[in-house]
Design a protein around this nucleic acid. Structure first.
Lengths: 132, 132
DNA sequence: AGTATTTGTTTAGCTAGGTAAATAAATACG
DNA sequence: CGTATTTATTTACCTAGCTAAACAAATACT
């Protein structure tokens, strides 16, 4: 395996593991938090909007939303178009998200802190260049 | 989610998906190929050597090796220390690996080609800086 | 020598992604 | 209007990582 790929995969796994560790105190997993944060910023979204935005396949989102629903974080309501389901944050989520967001921001700052803003931009540019 | 993490995870998933697409013609998955390539370079290895080198947990390797064994790519033989199993490439693997390696190198070149050698080094350095 | 600890591997069960195919509602077309 | 196609979601099943705990062999300790 090309060392660049190897390093990329490693770091990706490492960061998600760290993220899960931080989220443990809130009884959440990284993929769940990603969706909650997404809904928090965009307001109610259909499943399709969510998976297109997060760039994963639909079944992953269906499963995650089902779990979040049973845990009481989101509500799934029928849209005007009867095919689609609109997902919204529950009052419980609205109440608890701010403090979670805060701990996550601290984590991200700690993780990325060693990079200057220019380095962060450079990193994004280099990522883009890898045939997207 | 911090856009830098988002981009990192995205690209990581994207590349493994592409890799799997390329490997489909050889009836292999990326994780399997990673192990075969590892054995090809280092010669016979114990399970522990493999998971420490690839930096994943032991059960992932156990499962992958079991699958590779039933598919005829590797052999698992008892070591002198009766606890450990030594994994070696099968003659079938020795025969077929070169051509697979060739297609993978072409894929990696295509994927990374847009980056100069300096940019690749820079990318590695930036990855390292993210709290390892 | 006999017990306690460590080490290598495996098993069980979890999240998290993927594809392929089923289903139901909406839309397009002849 | 009725059928064909598209679109949104779901279901079933696959790889790929993880942790926790079981187990057996080796090593350390007294």
């Amino acid at each position: 395996m090309n060392p660049l790929f190897h390093a990329l995969f490693q770091k990706s796994r490492y960061i998600t593991n760290c993220l899960n560790e931080v989220l443990k105190q809130h009884n959440l997993y990284s993929s769940q938090w990603t969706i909650l944060y997404c809904l928090h910023n965009h307001g109610p979204m259909t499943l399709t909007q969510i998976w297109k935005y997060l760039n994963v396949e639909a079944p992953s989102i269906t499963r995650a939303i089902t779990r979040l629903e049973t845990l009481g974080w989101v509500l799934r309501i029928d849209g005007e178009d009867k095919r689609e389901k609109i997902v919204t944050l529950s009052p419980y989520a609205e109440k608890h998200l701010p403090v979670i967001t805060k701990t996550i921001l601290a984590f991200e700052e700690e993780m990325i802190g060693a990079l200057t803003v220019e380095e962060q931009q450079q990193f994004m540019i280099l990522l883009e260049k890898m045939k997207g």
